[in-house]
Amino acid sequence: MRDLLLIFGAALAGALAVGGLGAAALRLLSGRTIMAHIWVLIAVTVGSVTAGVVVIAQAMFLSPHDLQVVLITVAAGAVVSVAVSWLFGRRLAAAAMWAAQARERERRLEKGRRDLVAWVSHDLRTPLAGLRAMAEALEDKVVHDPATVADYHRRIRVETDRMTQLVDDLFELSRINAGALRLSPSTVPLGDVVSDAVAATTPIADTRRIRLVTAESRWPAVLASEPELTRVVANLLLNAVRYTPEDGTVWVSGGNDRDGAWLAVADTCGGIPEADLPRVFDVAFRGERARTPRPVDGPVGGLGLAIVRGLVEAHGGRVDVHNIPNGCRFVVHLPAPGSR
């Protein structure tokens, strides 16, 4: 029994020495990656066992040959243990990184949901208050002259249309996020879609003296669902008009490249801060106060670009944005017919 206690004590001493070094290393590595901590834990575990065996082997007065055999056996076991531990450590680190990314993604989504509720509440509360005031004025006959009554009716219709558009945007975004969007792709002439969207946006642009310029180019055909593609182009044009100051210009161009077809909408909005570029497609993101959209008719709520990204990605494409001199440029990449 006494020999067993001595063996245990000697092995424990060797393991504690290695463990103490490992604890010091972990303290020095605080703030490093999880893989660095896993490497230290692997080294401490394997080193403790190895140190205990070596200490006991030395204390047992083995012959040089037997001691060499023991050390070689321990070294081989240590190599295998390190290799297996490294493999599982990498998997554990990857799982931990994935979990951290998932938590960060969930945090961003939750913040996006809160921002969306705040923006939608604001965008609904203001027109609803105006509608109620005008309705009460008409009901109480506070206004009598036909011109004012007609103006109230027109403003009620405009605000109702705007809120209807907001509800439609929310429904579209919910379909995209829920994966319930069903596309019917076909070969669509991109030039026809752009022409229709420009014609629909021109009256809004004219009220603010903004020029819509369509490039004279050979427009490609794309593989897309025409209603959703029309909405993509319309939202990009309306976003450009919304942020471009009066007497500005919005350019629309398109073409083919090795990845398929592309469509670009450029404006003279003054540019987007570099820190905001990755976030412009987030739900309810409107950027800094200097880029607050001008009051034009059309969708509200900061959902237009989020819908653009969702619809483009549903088509298997992508949308990017970058700054150009005195403005910014949105580029949509879509698959060409026969690319699938």
Rank of each mutant, 00 (worst) to 15 (best):
A25Y: 05
T73C: 08
W262A: 06
T230Q: 13
W251F: 07
A96F: 09
F171A: 15
E274G: 01
A137K: 04
R105V: 02
R258W: 01
T160W: 01
S121N: 14
A94Q: 13
L190Q: 00
G179R: 04
V198C: 06
V49E: 09
I34F: 14
F61M: 12
P203D: 09
G191N: 05
E246H: 09
P278Y: 08
S174D: 15
E139H: 13
H122P: 00
L277Q: 05
A215G: 05
T249D: 08
A10M: 11
S339K: 04
R113Y: 09
L303E: 08
A224C: 00
Q101D: 15
V53D: 01
V321R: 05
V250K: 05
R208F: 10
D257K: 06
R286G: 14
V49Q: 12
L12Q: 08
V241Q: 02
S186H: 09
A205T: 05
L29H: 07
T73W: 05
W39R: 15
R231L: 13
E228R: 11
G19F: 10
M35K: 10
D192C: 00
A76K: 11
L303Y: 06
D320Y: 03
V213E: 11
V300S: 12
R125P: 02
R329Q: 10
A36M: 09
A290K: 10
E274K: 08
S195K: 12
E139N: 08
V74M: 11
R108E: 12
W262N: 03
P293A: 02
S339E: 06
R114Q: 13
S184Y: 09
H65S: 12
L16Y: 09
T244G: 04
V53Q: 08
V265W: 05
G317P: 04
P220N: 03
L87A: 13
G14Q: 03
C328Q: 10
G316P: 00
E159D: 14
A118E: 15
R157H: 10
M1E: 08
V69L: 14
A133M: 09
V321K: 04
A284M: 04
V79G: 01
F285T: 01
L212T: 02
P127T: 02
A57M: 04
R27Y: 11
A93G: 10
T126A: 14
A24L: 15
R231S: 12
T160H: 07
L131E: 04
Q58R: 13
V188G: 00
S81L: 10
V82L: 14
A17G: 15
I156E: 02
D115A: 15
A290E: 13
D66G: 01
G20S: 13
E226M: 03
D66L: 12
L92I: 14
R90M: 12
I324L: 11
L305C: 07
L138D: 00
A11T: 03
R162C: 02
Q58H: 11
L26T: 08
S174H: 15
R279S: 14
H65A: 13
L236K: 07
R231V: 08
V143K: 02
A234V: 03
P299D: 07
S184A: 13
G327N: 00
A133C: 02
